[in-house]
Write a protein that binds this DNA or RNA. Structure first.
Lengths: 232, 232
DNA sequence: AAGTGGTCTAGACCACGAG
DNA sequence: TCGTGGTCTAGACCACTTA
């Protein structure tokens, strides 16, 4: 536990338990003296809280508690994390799992040669046992050999981290509106041709190696993407 | 121009003109000595570049140029800024402009009393003269009196900033998939019942005062939302 | 005029990665 | 073992807000 983490936790307590929106927090100098750390350490903690949208600072005036926001921010989450954050229980039903050769499009997106082995998973993702989205994932097979012999009913991100020490640290994502064809609609238990949110994602490690390409189609009646945006 | 801004600009030059992805940048100590600033100032600049996804740092190893990402990050932009970033020319065609009394839902979202005066704008937003989205906006009238007498064919955010010194600094946004009814489809020049991205946004000032509530419906054949996400 | 956050310095030690 | 980024200190001055 670093010192700035201690300061951050202390402030989180204050904010959540003893403050309302727009309450003034102690000055940086006061906090440092009170907690026995330097002002820079206090500022480090405040910077983190500000980037999470929990506080705002006005030069010459002070530091204040922000109004509660709908969602923390726009951060990368797995389906399982996303559902838990919505107080829903995530699960998966495996439709198909195989190893295939990368098509031209897939190899381009994943930065590998065409024909490279990819693990392909097709799953229905469930939330509280109700169908939430259809998910197709292609993973670079050499990074996760024998993946298909693991349990594929749970969080792929957690399996990759636990069994292969692969952390998806960053992703490029594209969101668009689409409609479900009759087959897809049947799998999601909605009428044919209802609208859906289509999310395409390429996941990378911190070093920039592409690991997965995923395409998910979410039921529009049960799913929307909420986020807090900030200027600059 | 602060010193860390100078360091940041220097590094941007290096990254854009003399580097490839995964090239190693000079050490923090070297940069400080070379540019005549302290290590903390260098770290400030590096932190900004890291948060923009332009570099990544590995403790014990070094600082490296990141692979180019599809979009900078997820930041709050006006329609006009968004279109310009896509190399399209933004415009607006005004359908309706009036001052109305806030409904229960609107007053709740904007944090004002029901019945409060709101400016209502209904516009077709164009990109290179082609319809891109339908936009309905409600603004707290007391914050921007006489707004309806201004030019409403351009960027609302720029008008608010220039004429009223109001800066939308933060927004809570929700994205979902929907379909266009025949009237909406006609205005956007697409077939009825085609899918669309619906974006609802509440815009706030830095101090947390709600300024606008906007609902936009984007043509799914011309518009998608791309973003880079990061862990934590 | 006083107090706030914003910037900056010159040092120090620690945790981690690689040879 | 050595060099890297990560953390931290005790000061200083500046820019801005508020009274």
């Amino acid at each position: 536990m670093t010192k700035h983490a201690t300061v951050r936790e202390f402030l989180l307590q204050q904010i959540e338990q003893r403050s309302k929106a727009h309450d003034r927090l102690p000055t940086e100098r006061d906090l440092g003296e009170q907690l026995g750390v330097s002002r820079l350490t206090v500022r480090h903690a405040l910077r983190e809280l500000e980037s999470q949208g929990l506080i705002y600072r006005i030069q010459g005036s002070g530091t204040f508690v922000a109004e509660p926001q709908i969602r923390k921010g726009t951060e990368l989450t797995s389906f399982s994390e996303d559902m838990r954050a919505r107080n829903l229980r995530p699960a998966a039903r495996l439709l198909q799992a195989s190893t295939v050769a990368a098509t031209a499009e897939q190899s381009w997106r994943l930065g590998v040669s065409p024909g490279t082995d990819l693990h392909y998973l097709s799953r229905i993702r469930l939330a509280d046992d109700q169908p939430m989205c259809l998910e197709d994932v292609w993973l670079v097979a050499s990074l996760a050999p024998d993946l298909l012999e693991h349990d594929l009913q749970g969080s792929l991100y957690e399996t990759l981290e636990r069994d292969y020490k692969i952390i998806i640290d960053r992703a490029d994502q594209e969101v668009r509106a689409t409609v479900l064809d009759p087959e897809q609609a049947a799998l999601l238990a909605v009428p044919p041709y209802t609208p859906a949110l289509e999310v395409e994602r390429i996941g990378y490690t911190r070093r920039g190696a592409a690991v997965e390409f995923a395409r998910s189609r979410y039921r529009s009646d049960r799913y929307s993407i909420a986020s807090s945006l900030r200027r600059r």
